[in-house]
């Protein structure tokens, strides 16, 4: 079976600044992996490369064995993305936004309608379908974005700090929902965050710092390897935060 995401030796520079340095990550189908790093560590740059907003000039990025540079269409078909910044059109309704996304993936209107009602039901926002996005709360908008990212049935879901700016209740609801999606099928998830409390034991973590992957693997193994009590302490030790 191919890896859901296979990144090998990717380095990326903006002028002289090295945003990513020899990054390699492997995520299997069904994995929930947390990409943990401080702000400015290189998480968003990495997401931009995976989604081909930028080209990777070194190394390779494959999604289910499709190289993002050489076979971008097939690679992108398999990715669902929730960006750090909200990307819904505030002046359109939830339904119009979701139909627009479906069209961008070439899904027919009939097919899109049934998928929309399925996904919107899963996030429990049926009654908001006709509402303007502007009238939704931050948490509801995020849930809609997650529903949208799943409309084209991707095999890899990328979320870039999806819970930033949300209250605790909304954060927990979103985290729970995505973890449940992951458990149900073969959907692999890469969840970028700097919020350590979003990581559970038994999950996989990739720690990025100054553009380099400084540790990766099962949370329990990372804790053990760093000889710390929990992932917070392990992270602090790895990135040199003194408490």
């Amino acid at each position: 079976m191919h890896a859901a995401l296979e990144i090998k030796n990717v380095t990326h520079k903006f002028g002289e600044f090295k945003a990513l340095d020899k990054v390699s990550i492997n995520i299997n189908p069904g994995d929930f992996t947390v990409l943990l790093g401080l702000n400015g560590a290189g998480k968003t740059t990495l997401y931009s490369l995976i989604t081909r907003l930028y080209n990777n000039n070194t190394g390779s990025i494959k999604i289910h064995n499709f190289n993002v540079r050489e076979n971008s269409s097939n690679a992108l078909k398999n990715i669902g993305v929730v960006f750090q910044q909200p990307t819904l059109d505030l002046d359109l309704s939830v339904e119009e936004n979701l139909h627009y996304h479906s069209a961008l993936h070439g899904i027919s209107t009939v097919d899109a309608s049934s998928r929309i009602s399925e996904e919107i039901g899963r996030i429990d926002l049926n009654d908001k379908l006709k509402s303007k996005v502007r009238s939704l709360s931050g948490g509801q908008r995020r849930r809609v974005e997650i529903a949208r990212s799943l409309l084209h049935r991707p095999k890899l879901l990328l979320l870039d700090e999806p819970t930033v700016g949300l209250d605790i209740g909304s954060r927990q609801m979103i985290l729970k929902h995505v973890k449940a999606l992951c458990k149900k099928g073969d959907l692999a998830v890469l969840w970028a965050t700097h919020l350590i409390d979003e990581i559970d034991k038994g999950e996989k973590v990739v720690i990025i710092h100054d553009g380099k992957i400084i540790e990766s693997g099962d949370v329990s193994k990372v804790i053990k390897k760093t000889k710390q009590k929990n992932i917070r302490e392990a992270f602090n030790k790895l990135v040199g935060i003194k408490t």
Binding site: A75, I79, V81, F83, Q84, Q85, T87, H101, H105
Partner: peptide, 18 residues
Amino acid sequence: EMGSMKTMLVSPIPRWFL
């Protein structure tokens, strides 16, 4: 700037067509 352009640019359909 707001991010919604990214939604279009990550579509599998070729960028020139979008």
